[in-house]
């Protein structure tokens, strides 16, 4: 039915996410201010990319303590869909809705490039329109995308099918080439690549279309 995109001070991919949801899931999309304490009635909450609070302290750390995040956590606990893209992924790890942390890229530089990805699990609400174990390409644009978790956690993620996207050519040093993971229940996804930037043939990137097609199906 509906989706909400949370806007933090410093979010800068909120409009892109709203447009991609609007154009490719045919759902109505609310923008929700981070100071709000309640979510409208929605199936999906999306935490967009950007530099919430300037990435000061740690990427996503301050946004994770915003008033709206309690409602987001409650939504997740009820089984509602949550997607965090880039800075949104960082916020989800900071709120512990997802395990691990996103550290500075191994090369230490901000990196903006199209990255080939392997779909490791197409049996999720976020990836059902992709070919299982197929490949796609979605651009990344981040400074802190180097996924870290201890070995036990990584083993568990692997064992439980929680690794959804892996980089084909690891651009940032992420443990086990991880580009995107879900929580154990499978309703919360965090990913560093930006599917909302890959939905228009004129931009030369279309690897995100199947992502939004999957979401449209899951919200139907």
């Amino acid at each position: 039915m509906n989706a909400a995109v949370i806007v933090f001070p410093g979010s800068n991919c909120d409009r892109d996410a709203v447009c991609a949801l609007r154009d490719h899931t045919a759902k109505s999309v609310h923008r929700v201010w981070h100071r709000d304490t309640d979510l409208p009635k929605v199936d999906l909450v999306l935490l967009p990319g950007g530099f919430s609070y300037g990435d000061y302290l740690r990427s996503g750390a301050i946004a994770a303590r915003s008033p709206i995040m309690a409602a987001v956590q409650a939504h997740a606990k009820r089984g509602g869909l949550v997607v965090g893209i880039c800075n949104g992924f960082q916020i989800l790890t900071e709120t512990h809705l997802l395990p691990g942390a996103l550290m500075r890229n191994a090369g230490l530089k901000f990196l903006c490039k199209s990255t080939p990805l392997r779909i490791e699990n197409a049996d999720t609400p976020f990836t059902s329109a992709y070919d299982d174990h197929g490949e796609t390409a979605i651009p990344i644009a981040h400074h802190d995308g180097n996924y870290f978790a201890d070995e036990d956690t990584l083993d568990r993620l692997e064992g439980q099918g929680q690794i959804v996207f892996r980089y084909v050519n690891n651009p940032n040093g992420s443990s086990r080439d991880i580009a995107g993971i879900t929580n154990k229940a499978g309703n919360v996804l965090g990913m560093m690549p930006h599917p909302e930037r890959a939905v228009d043939p004129l931009t030369g990137e279309t690897g995100g279309l199947a992502f939004f097609k999957s979401l449209a199906g899951a919200m139907a």
Binding site: N12, C13, R15, D16, C19, A20, G49, K109, F110, L111, C112, K113, P139, A141, H194, E196, R197, V199, D200, L202, T203, G204, E205
Partner: peptide, 19 residues
């Protein structure tokens, strides 16, 4: 140089450096 710049935020970039 240009891989250190976000060239696609706002999702309206059709051709940028390297394009």
């Amino acid at each position: 140089i240009w891989e250190q710049y976000d060239r696609h935020v706002m999702a309206d970039t059709l051709k940028a450096s390297g394009g």
